[in-house]
Design a protein around this nucleic acid. Structure first.
Lengths: 262, 262
DNA sequence: TGAATTTATGATTAACTGGGTTACTCAACT
DNA sequence: AGTTGAGTAACCCAGTTAATCATAAATTCA
């Protein structure tokens, strides 16, 4: 990780500190002190673009987080803890918060984790869709059928498929291009490859997956309605789960020739 | 980690999600959905205390973070990703932010990391003081002299001392009570123990440390001016660094009998 | 088919946090 | 004493966001 200019590093640091929960004055003050090592209110005010009279508030805030020590003299001088210490501190705090969030949500999670029978859910954004695909792979118990275009076959997906294969899940894959097939063969040797079922290449196709015959996901690469070029964010998917789920029923019908084939 | 009541878990989850960057409506909506699994705007509004008409905005926000999927029907139905997935997602995001912050601060860190010669810095709060102590231990190269009262001898400190000892740093320790000495002996076998130098027990003493003869820290347990009971947060310390630092000079004079003693 | 109810979206208002400024006190130095 | 600079505190203003209201779409039921 690196930054083009010192200004960029400065801005990123300020933004992250604000996300940590600091006021913008406090964030700017800390970054200024991090650069200076130590400094007075006047020094900070000059380089941090913080009104001098508010530097004291900002330092109070930083002090309460243990990020700055002060020298009781006139003028007061302020000292920022090192970058390494700050990083460790923030990382630990965030780790703690994440753990606590996880625990709290676990507590609240409804008992009945029954598969939804009805409903077709929509997801948009390539990253989000990939997350769903990976999640379904993780929950697969028997068989995954997966078709994809090349540009959507990222490492995440291959890894998830591989992990499923290792658990004994049957993987059946189809890709549009020989390239894709090759890459899959590499990542998931045990996968059973088959050719695409129908004209797939000239559609704005994305992926198509069926898990254990009761969960399915279909995605397309949409360009909006105005025909702008495909952006990484333009994938939209729908998915459904449950033996009698309508999307599942339809997709299973389409796949039947293949699923009953062995 | 666990929670006394479901309400507490709910509140904690909401708070953490807000810290993650969500609006309070979005946070409340997500927590409601996490409990429900799926639900309509009306459902959410009932259990989440969010105006029904605002649920849609909240869901938009959540959707953009990939935390919920929606069912395009009337009424719309919303589905929250699982607690486990949420936890992983948030954790990964925060980890990333922490790394980036660290990198940015490293970039900004001043070249001259010269030891400060003048200045006596103050730190307050037991946790913060402990951090300073640990930091000094980590930077120690030759010798650490450390005195402490029992209640401040936490695992962090013992670990840091042990790590320093393993690096070949000479450790000289003094505690007020036999108990403390015993525990130190356990944790840091190579430490050289000696008795307290002067009347220490009847003062509001905290800790006293000298590192490599050029960095020193003294703390006391203050009860405020009103005589309220000692809280965990009531420790105040001062520290200084540099051969000619005034605090160092004074403390070194006091310690001389011991430091020159071998 | 049409009235009534429910749902969704947009516009509007209110409250509050927080950034920015100003005024004032205290201390030191001229 | 007057001046300058440091530190403290109070105030004001604006942007954000929570909350309300109004309107349009749609579904239900008569």
């Amino acid at each position: 990780m690196s930054f083009d200019t010192p200004e960029e590093a400065r801005d990123v640091a300020i933004e992250r500190l604000e996300q940590f929960g600091l006021s913008t004055y406090a964030a700017r003050t800390f970054v200024a002190l991090a650069g200076l090592g130590t400094g007075t209110a006047k020094d900070v005010s000059r380089v941090a673009d913080v009104p001098r009279t508010r530097v004291y508030d900002a330092v109070d805030e930083l002090q309460s987080h243990g990020l700055v020590d002060v020298q009781q003299s006139t003028p007061k001088e302020f000292w920022a803890i090192s970058a390494a210490t700050t990083g460790r501190k923030v990382e630990r705090e965030w780790q703690y918060r994440a753990d606590e969030l996880q625990a709290a949500l676990d507590e609240l999670q409804p008992v009945e984790q029954s598969e939804e029978q009805r409903g077709v859910w929509t997801v948009s954004g390539r990253k989000t869709v990939t997350e769903r695909v990976v999640e379904f792979c993780e929950n697969a118990e028997d068989r995954i059928v997966y078709m994809t275009v090349e540009e959507l076959l990222t490492g995440d997906v291959v890894d998830a498929l591989e992990a499923a294969a290792d658990r004994g899940v049957t993987i059946e894959l189809a890709g549009v291009s020989p390239d894709v097939q090759e890459r899959i063969q590499e990542g998931v040797p045990s996968a059973d490859l088959f050719e695409s079922l129908w004209m797939w290449s000239d559609t704005p196709a994305g992926r198509l997956m069926m898990v254990d015959g009761d969960t399915t996901l279909v995605s397309v690469l949409v360009d909006g309605e105005n025909g702008q070029p495909t952006t990484p964010e333009s994938e939209t998917a729908i998915w459904g789960s449950g033996e009698t789920n309508s999307l599942v029923v339809v997709l299973r019908a389409i796949f039947t020739w293949r699923l009953d084939d062995d």
